[in-house]
């Protein structure tokens, strides 16, 4: 009866408003106020050098003018730079992935005893807490300029990523397979090889390929702080205002990253 009434529109002029996204008006307007206040605070405290920024547009013109056409003349430098980047990325991936397996086992609560688990987690947290570029400067400071620092950096970077995800994968395995292996009388290592590794293998290969791809990207970057590879070449080109050469390097980086992304995606699809 009542519903019939409303449907026939007996009461004219009823208002309807979309219920607000956040129900509590205090929180709603509070959030808006906080956002505005934050923007004001941030912009007013940040040191913008407006005069220097104003020179930006003409400079940008000059830079892009200088960048075209990109110069591939110094092919030798390009080749050695990229080769070194690739070597760094590849070796770091191999090392990192190899080390990740035991660390992942250590950091998986279901297969590691508590003290070992804590050690494994700590290793992962330590290797994840810094941006690879920061790690790279520290290694450059410790072991000197060159690809060695790059390899160390990216190995740590790989461990942080691969071991963490692998450990999570191990924690989610089907425990029945492990129990089956325990019930046939297999020891710890055999249980790992039969009951655990087959289950995480596709993930492991996928992660390794993904990590190779990430390491290739990162290897271009760690070079900027002196850890070897094409990044150093790029940094120098910028420093010497060789914008056409810098642009050529950038184009190459983009091309290589696209190829490597495609390849790693393809391999990951193949393994399942």
């Amino acid at each position: 009866m009542t519903s019939g009434n409303t449907a026939s529109g007996a009461q004219p002029g009823r208002v309807w408003k979309k219920p607000p996204f956040i129900a509590n008006p205090w929180i709603r307007y509070g959030l808006v106020a906080i956002t505005l206040a934050y923007l004001y605070w941030a912009f007013s405290t940040l040191p913008f050098d407006w005069q220097r920024i104003a020179e930006g547009l003409p400079r940008a013109g000059k830079i892009f003018g200088g960048a075209f056409p990109p110069s591939f003349e110094r092919g030798g430098l390009l080749w050695t730079g990229f080769k070194e980047s690739f070597q760094i990325a590849f070796l770091a991936t191999m090392l990192g992935v190899l080390l990740s397996v035991p660390i992942a086992v250590m950091a998986a609560r279901n297969v590691a005893p508590l003290p070992v688990y804590i050690l494994g987690r700590t290793l992962i947290i330590v290797s994840r807490s810094f941006h690879p570029v920061i790690v790279a400067i520290l290694f450059v400071a410790a072991v000197g300029f060159g690809p060695m620092a790059g390899i160390l950096t990216l190995t740590l970077y790989s461990i942080g990523f691969v071991a963490k995800l692998l450990a999570e994968e191990i924690e989610e395995i089907d425990w029945g397979q492990v129990e089956a292996m325990r019930s046939v009388g297999a020891g710890y290592m055999k249980i790992l090889v039969y009951g655990v590794f087959p289950q995480i293998m596709p993930r492991q290969i996928g992660l390794s390929m993904y990590q190779l791809d990430s390491n290739l990207r990162a290897s271009a970057v760690v070079g900027i702080v002196g850890a070897g590879g094409i990044g150093g070449t790029l940094m120098n080109a910028f420093g010497r205002y060789d914008y056409d050469f810098a642009f050529a390097i950038l184009l190459m980086i983009i091309a290589i990253i696209l190829v490597s992304e495609g390849l790693s995606g393809w391999v990951r699809k193949k393994v399942w």
Binding site: Q177, E179, A180, S183, V184, G185, G187, P198, Q199
Partner: peptide, 19 residues
């Protein structure tokens, strides 16, 4: 482990190593 290998077990969910 040596005793376990003398005891065979079959599970409800088969517990095969799928891969």
């Amino acid at each position: 482990r040596h005793s376990r290998r003398r005891i065979g077990m079959v599970f409800q969910g088969f517990n095969l190593i799928d891969r």
